[in-house]
Design a binder for these strands. Structure first.
Lengths: 67, 67
DNA sequence: TATTTACCTATGTTATAACATGTGTTATAA
DNA sequence: TTATAACACATGTTATAACATAGGTAAATA
């Protein structure tokens, strides 16, 4: 699963809007929106923070392909 | 002072971005953005909540013209 | 090697649009 | 009067663009 899809799936599984997720992750709405639309990809630290966020909330379908 | 200007002044006095203010007021970024750009005006309750928010934070230059 | 410069990418911020939905008001019918 | 229908307006959500800035990488230089 590519990163944009992973973000969208996780977000929807948690019933959050892009703005909600941005608030939870302490990033701007624009950033989450760009992630989901494949415009940008977060750096490794932010990526890891995102997956930890998911893991902590029981979102497990999401996996990362190491880069 | 018109409402769009009042919002912008108050927000800048508090060193908040539109997104920050939206979070504080529990509305979306788009709503604050539309307020500042005169696209929409909140209803009386929301308007009052905004002015209370300002008052609580020492923003006093802002006044409302009763409608 | 260490430092600095150049470049690319991600992000924050603001602005804006489209669409669906919610809300409030007004008018009309029962 | 009460209920409902119609309409206008505010909001939420998503998408996108432009601009400034921060951050990292890589190359060139001291």
């Amino acid at each position: 699963m590519d990163f944009p899809t992973a973000v969208k799936k996780a977000r929807e599984a948690l019933c959050l809007s892009q703005e909600d997720l941005a608030r939870k992750l302490n990033v701007s709405f624009a950033t989450v929106n760009r992630w989901e639309n494949g415009k940008t990809t977060p750096n490794k630290l932010t990526m890891k923070a995102f997956y930890t966020f998911c893991k902590d909330r029981g979102i497990s379908e999401i996996t990362i392909e190491e880069s």
